[in-house]
Structures are given as C-alpha cells and as structure tokens.
C-alpha cells in the first residue's frame, strides 16, 4: 500500500472500476516500483486483466486514480494516452501480431509510431530480435512461426521501444509447458536488465519460477493479499 506522497512508478489510489456484468475491481491500493517483477494472480474473472487495462489506460477508474510516472488517469487527456503507451510494453495470450506483415515489420511498427529514424529502427529491431532469439526468423510471417516464437515477437515488439514496464496478460496461456518455462526465463532476463515486469496469470506454477517476485492476489475484484 502506498501513501499518495510517495513516488513509485505505478500507483493505484482507491481505484474502483466496474463495467457491466464483466469483472471489475474495487478499492485497489498498491504501488509498483521501478524494476520490480510482479505477479497479479487470482482465478478467472478476478480482475487481473482489468488492472492491466487500467495501467495502460484502456479503462479509467470510476473512483480513485491510477498514476504511472507523470501520467495521472484523473487528468490525462485522450491525446496524451499514446505517449503513456510508448512507455508501457504489452503482451497478450493471443499475441496480437499482424499477420499481413513479417516479424521485422511487426516489431518496427512500435518505433514508427514513435517517429524514430529508419536507421535507428533497423538497428533496434535487429538487436531486440537477436536478444529474444529470433534473429533468424526476421522475414517470416507470424503464421509461419510456432506459438512460442510468436510470443517472442510480441515481447520484442513491446521491448523495442524500451518501456519502463512490460505488462503480460496470461502470456503462457497458449503455450506448452516447455515453451512457457523459456518465456518466463526470458521475462526474468528482461527484468534483470531493469524493466519492471507485471504478469497477470492464474497459473500458480509460473509464480514459483520467479521467487523474488512481488505477488498481488486478487479475488472478486479486490486485493486479498500482497507479498
């Protein structure tokens, strides 16, 4: 729990957000510091994805506020949201890659939207794809890759813009156990490089792989425990 005057990277202040009959969250108070590894766990429908959506401001609190560095959900204007999202990397269970373009183009898209120069885009994309072990798949299309490889492309796309935090929503949901282990090792490596990682998952097996991670347990839209 964090008082309002403390400066953390991500702060939730009494956040409530419910929408229709879908899962919502109530009275959330927590903070995440720079470089932390955090698991948000709980059963399906507990509100894990809602918390992530609140962080990248796809949803806004009905009560309270979410502050990510100097982006405040209670003050932010619609045209400022893209600038927040350039600081926040996101990966999803379904990868959300564009099948009409190759790996290089999928990853480079992140940088084009931030108006990088072509030379820098090329250098960064090659570097990050080598880091995630896909340097040899650069001109493949997502449909030609395995699930694990597709998730790596998604990670590369999220990391290439050097975000301060990487959000992963059930990142191993579509992957077999061996590939899931590889992916968690990759996320741990990314975290060691200084990027905060927040993983929303209902798979408790993953949590044991990162013993030093902070654990936020949610149930029925409320935080039941933070360790």
């Amino acid at each position: 729990m964090s008082p309002e005057n403390e400066i953390d990277m991500i702060n939730f202040f009494n956040v409530s957000c419910t929408f229709g009959k879908e899962a919502g969250v109530r009275n959330l108070n927590f903070s995440i510091e720079e470089g932390e590894f955090v698991f948000i766990t709980g059963p399906s429908g507990a509100g894990k994805s809602t918390i992530l959506r609140l962080i990248y401001m796809d949803l806004f609190p009905e009560k309270g506020k979410v502050v990510i560095r100097n982006f405040d959900s209670s003050k932010i204007r619609a045209n400022e949201i893209p600038f927040l999202r350039r600081k926040v990397g996101m990966i999803f269970q379904d990868f959300r890659l564009l099948n009409d373009r190759n790996v290089y183009q999928n990853v480079a898209l992140s940088l084009y939207v931030s108006h990088y120069k072509t030379k820098e885009i090329r250098a960064r994309v090659y570097k990050i794809l080598n880091q995630v072990g896909l340097g040899h798949r650069i001109y493949y299309h997502p449909s030609e890759l395995s699930g694990g490889e597709q998730q790596r492309v998604a990670i590369a796309r999220a990391l290439v813009k050097e975000p301060v935090v990487l959000l992963a929503d059930e990142p191993t949901g579509n992957l077999d156990p061996r590939v899931s282990t590889d992916l968690m090792n990759l996320l741990a490596y990314i975290n060691q490089q200084g990027t905060a990682v927040i993983v929303a998952t209902h798979n408790y097996g993953l949590i044991q792989r990162i013993p030093k991670a902070k654990l936020i347990q949610v149930n029925d839209g409320e935080i039941v425990n933070i360790t």
Binding site: P82, F83, R85, R96, L98, D100, L109, S110, V113, K161
Partner: peptide
C-alpha cells in the same frame, strides 16, 4: 476487416492521426 491493425497501432502508442 483490419481493425486488428488499428487496435495494435493504438496499443503500441500510435496517435489517432497516425
């Protein structure tokens, strides 16, 4: 038919004009 492109662009920080 290409709303996935729009969604992805917005997720990676594209402005509406972009």
């Amino acid at each position: 038919s290409r709303r996935d492109v729009i969604e992805t662009m917005k997720l990676v920080g594209a402005t509406n004009n972009f």
